[in-house]
Structures are given as structure tokens and as C-alpha cells.
């Protein structure tokens, strides 16, 4: 628990923009408090760079409490760094030792092109959602009462677990195939488990999978890496459920 300071070396992917070539750059950073979060460490690096009138490292981040899904970063060969069950913003420097060299790279996927440095474009996920990740219910003051369709607690809990996905893309980043099956599987599952999602179940899974394929994500080899690296612990069961849903839908 006692906080201390460490000195570290950083190897960071720098890339001017989407079209430019990038390369790993080395930085030395001293006096990093082990109580700092990983992103606070990057803040410190950027403060140092700005003071030296150099351009700071661009990286995505927002809520810094592990829920918005904006932070990414492939750290020392792993999505969201060495710990499991957390996002990069929840990673703390106490996970590293004095003198460590830390590699920081952007998510790598054809569907997630690099925008600048460590920032990638994940709008492919939005487009998958737009293809079918919803229940077509209009806003109205008169929707049926929330309690009129009971939902077994077990189903509701499972739907919630699937819906806990934060859309960060760690599954894609970590998958050796750059597959988005965990993301899409979680969304499909959420609706498949709830009565409200049944009506459009067929179109939903077909459309979302079609969009997923069009975006250029890879296929699922069931390595299970996504499940391990998912900061929200989304289970592979969701991929299986999507496979079932897809089979059901395709045979209709």
C-alpha cells in the first residue's frame, strides 16, 4: 500500500496521422508515483513533453473509472495491460517495477485504423450497433407497464452481464484474429435473453453479423483471449449464444 516513486522507460507508438507511417519512440520518465493510474503516468509524460515544447502523446481516455470504454492501449503485449478485469485507466503503476520498460501500442485491427499515436477509430462498433443493436420501440409516454412482462431473474442477470460491455475493443485488440465476436455476441445475447428482444431476433443477428463481417473483423477461433482480457468479464457463452441465434435465424 505504501506509495513510492519509480523510474521507467517507455516505448510508445507515435504516428502523426492516419496516413503517416508510425514508429516506436523511447521516453524516460522519472518519479512516477506507484499510486498513479497508468493514464496519470501518461499525463505526467505529456506534461514533461509539453514543458520541453514537444508534442504530447495522443491517447483516448475520458471517464477514468473504467466504464466509458474510451481508453484503450496495448501495454506490454496485452490489452489494458498486465492485470485482468480492468481498463487501462484502472491500471495502477504499482503493477510495475522500478526500471521497467513498458511498451505502449494502439489497438491493432483493420477495422480500427489508427487516427494518431495511440488513438484509433472504433466507429465500426457503432455501425454494428446501428445495424441491429436495438429494440425498435418508439418513444412514447404510453409504453406498456414495465412490470407487465415478468423476466426470470436469471435471464435478467445474464442479459445484464452481457450488456455490461463497454465497447472498448479490447476483445478485438487482443484476439489474434482481430475478431469482434465477443462484442457482437454480448449485444446479441442481451436482447436474445430478454422477451423484448425476441420480435426482431432474426433480423438483428443476421444484420449485425453481416455488418461485423463487412467491417473487416476476423473470425472467432475460440482461443478465449477476449474473455480473459475483457475488462468487464464478458463470457464466451455470449459468443456461443450468438452462434445459436445465427443458426436459428439463418435456417428461417
Amino acid at each position: 500500500m505504501a506509495s513510492k516513486s519509480i523510474n521507467i522507460n517507455l516505448k510508445v507508438w507515435r504516428q502523426k496521422n492516419a496516413k503517416a507511417n508510425g514508429a516506436m519512440e523511447t521516453y524516460k520518465l522519472d518519479d512516477v508515483s506507484t499510486d498513479s493510474s497508468f493514464l496519470e503516468m501518461l499525463d505526467q509524460l505529456n506534461e514533461q513533453l509539453v514543458t520541453e515544447k514537444k508534442e504530447p502523446v495522443a491517447f483516448d481516455h475520458d471517464c477514468r473509472e473504467g466504464i466509458c470504454g474510451m481508453c484503450s492501449l496495448f501495454i506490454n503485449g496485452r490489452a489494458h495491460g498486465p492485470e485482468t478485469g480492468i481498463t487501462t485507466c484502472q491500471l495502477h503503476m504499482r503493477s510495475f517495477k522500478d526500471g521497467d520498460t513498458i511498451y505502449i501500442e494502439p489497438w491493432r485491427s483493420k477495422a480500427f485504423p489508427v487516427v494518431k499515436d495511440l488513438v484509433v477509430d472504433r466507429s465500426a462498433f457503432d455501425r454494428i450497433q446501428q445495424a441491429g443493436g436495438f429494440v425498435s420501440v418508439n418513444t412514447s409516454g404510453n409504453t406498456i407497464d414495465a412490470n407487465s412482462i415478468p423476466v426470470p431473474k436469471q435471464d435478467a442477470d445474464k442479459a445484464f452481464e452481457a450488456a455490461a460491455c463497454i465497447g472498448c475493443g479490447a476483445c478485438v485488440a487482443t484476439c489474434k484474429n482481430g475478431s469482434a465476436m465477443l462484442f457482437v455476441g454480448a449485444k446479441v445475447s442481451q436482447y436474445a435473453l430478454l422477451p423484448q428482444g425476441q420480435v426482431e431476433a432474426t433480423d438483428r443477428v443476421l444484420n449485425m453479423v453481416r455488418q461485423m463481417d463487412e467491417e473487416g473483423f476476423g473470425n472467432c477461433t475460440n482461443t478465449g483471449a477476449c474473455e480473459i482480457e475483457c475488462p468487464k468479464g464478458i463470457s464466451l457463452e455470449n459468443i456461443a449464444r450468438m452462434n445459436r441465434e445465427f443458426l436459428k435465424a439463418s435456417s428461417k
Binding site: 412514447s140 409504453t143 406498456i144 431473474k153 450488456a163 428482444g197
Partner: peptide, 24 residues
């Protein structure tokens, strides 16, 4: 309108916590 919000969200597939009887 607070009640309508819950109706709307449930209809959208928001997985609120439920009791064993299946109600919210």
C-alpha cells in the same frame, strides 16, 4: 413522467435488476 421512463427503458431492453418473481 418518471414512471414512463422505466416503461420506455424496459421496452428498449434495459436489463434492470429483478426479483425472483421476475418483477423489477
Amino acid at each position: 413522467v418518471s414512471g414512463n421512463i422505466i416503461d420506455q427503458c424496459v421496452a428498449q431492453g434495459v436489463p434492470f435488476a429483478r426479483e425472483y418473481g421476475g418483477t423489477l
